[in-house]
Design a protein around this nucleic acid. Sequence first.
DNA 1: TTGTATGCGTTATCAG
DNA 2: CTGATAACGCATACAA
Lengths: 355, 355
Amino acid sequence: MQKAASLKDVARLAGVSTATVTRVLHNNGYVGEETRARVTSALKETGYQLNVVAQSLRKQQTRTLGHLLNTITRNPFFAEVALGLEEQALQHGCNVFIYNVQASAERERLGVETFIRRRTDGIVFTSPVDPANVELAAKAGIPVVQVDWLARVDHNAVLVDNEVGAIEAMEHLFALGHQRIGFIGADPARFRHSADARPSVAEQRLSAYRKSLAAMGIAADEALVQIRPYYYSLDERDAAEGYAGMRELLTLEQRPTAVFATCDILAAGALQAVHDAGLRVPDDISVIGFDDTYAARLSPPLTTVALPMREIGERAADLVFRHMPPPSDAASEPDIVTLPSRLAIRGSTAAPVSQ
Amino acid sequence: MQKAASLKDVARLAGVSTATVTRVLHNNGYVGEETRARVTSALKETGYQLNVVAQSLRKQQTRTLGHLLNTITRNPFFAEVALGLEEQALQHGCNVFIYNVQASAERERLGVETFIRRRTDGIVFTSPVDPANVELAAKAGIPVVQVDWLARVDHNAVLVDNEVGAIEAMEHLFALGHQRIGFIGADPARFRHSADARPSVAEQRLSAYRKSLAAMGIAADEALVQIRPYYYSLDERDAAEGYAGMRELLTLEQRPTAVFATCDILAAGALQAVHDAGLRVPDDISVIGFDDTYAARLSPPLTTVALPMREIGERAADLVFRHMPPPSDAASEPDIVTLPSRLAIRGSTAAPVSQ
DNA sequence: TTGTATGCGTTATCAG
DNA sequence: CTGATAACGCATACAA
């Protein structure tokens, strides 16, 4: 295959200047009827395809977004957000670069630098690892959006109120009659990075669990709280952690009648432990998850706190465009959007049986 | 934030020409000791970041790959391939554009055109929808790699021998003593596009099922074959199809002792149907899947034919680089790589109990 | 060892 | 209505 045709080639073939070709290409400016016809057929004949690289250089705008992801395979959450982001970017004529940072601040920095050099029109962090990298991108003059964790309070973000979601989950269990409720979740200590950052997802979900119990006047029992290394480890033993957590809970003399797992992946492992023990969910024990990723595919289908993942991605894209320099440079105040979660009640929760 | 510094800015600050700055930047050509120092500090002072857009235009090479995916959220398979591809691309200094085509030939064409205009150095189809689009990309002079389905036999591809994998699955069941084996899979008719294309994934898995049975001298029983609309529908009811298929099989007067589902998503649904029926896997019925996506997280953990998804993505990237014009334009013959699958035996298969 | 000049393919400005 | 031209930022060939 030959080198792609350029404007100049088309212009020569049509016997006009490149300026005229651009005019018919973008349909702006006056072009004579007959000239237009000649150009159009030359365009067709050469199979001309605009060189977006050259266009980007000239317009100082690449129509690209950079998406830094923890790891797209790690949790379907990331893939859903990525899809929502891409769909919305496409609406604005933008394409998106994917960069998996694997939970490493170093790789995240590399990703940001890559995007700066590529002059992406925006950078989305799903989710940020190191607040310094968010700042690095912002200092380069690139609109930035943080997803899921407000690492820097002075920049845009699309968040979910995990506390509200977790409280709804707990109240669902209370309403069914559960009092003795176990917890399986990630270690919040792993996510504390900066003084002014908001609490991490893990912190929010754990503290909501504790608050809910307290609000019901139920005494805290630390034996019921299984804090597990999770999520940001690289060996992908996430579900195994859910399994181990549930095993611990099942061996308690007085085992819980329900378990709140802070993510569907952990819940999936928990379900396996129940299965292995020869027990049934929800007959013997109820399980509730968070995120709504694997939930609907598990046995039994998992009751979970559903996150609007696709929408999160879409809103992130919207924020980028709202903060792009040219038109709306008035938007200097950060936008922080909080989206609601929704309790998806399925087959893994039921009233406790008296033992 | 100000406009990013250019070579010219750095040069001015250091009191040298832009050529010299390039030399220290890329560390090629002779530069005086003292000059280098001045340039280096000017680089630092300005916070210079190379403009890859300009570089791409000049070098006629963008160091980008375009990745057309069915839908990243549809099956973890796609996300794993995408990750492998990205990792390997990164090794070669390339970034990757993601484009979800949602199983639409029209969207796939749009994606190809987008990548042509962006002058990506390669295009990967995971998996191709319309062979014509593969050809479209190739005709533009862009190295092309097909993943999972050889839509055009005259272009590169990374494949898996689904027949071998499916036969291994069946033989595993035979070895356990199963004779009456059900099948839940996609409709192969949906994937026939061109005369010279190889059989689709769905076709391969179904025909291997039939051949295996025949080889064992077991009479075919069409009541055991559940062909389901699946995968390329857009309503994401994939797991529900597995559920429905298993329900049909369970209501047979003489139900199968084992079921071969051609993908973990269908298997997940099948597991739910068994659970709902108050039966247990593998005690009452064995289930085997394909892909190894959800498998390890299901209850019980699913025995499945594991695909080397990450490696598939890596190999796809390798093929792109092998076929990039500049150095290795000798590589005009298409490379067609076939990777082996591996049977992952877990807890969902066991010997049948005599009923 | 360093500088000058040209061109990659567009778009936009300014004449005509 | 149309054409010439400059500039976006970089890399390279050629001079010096």
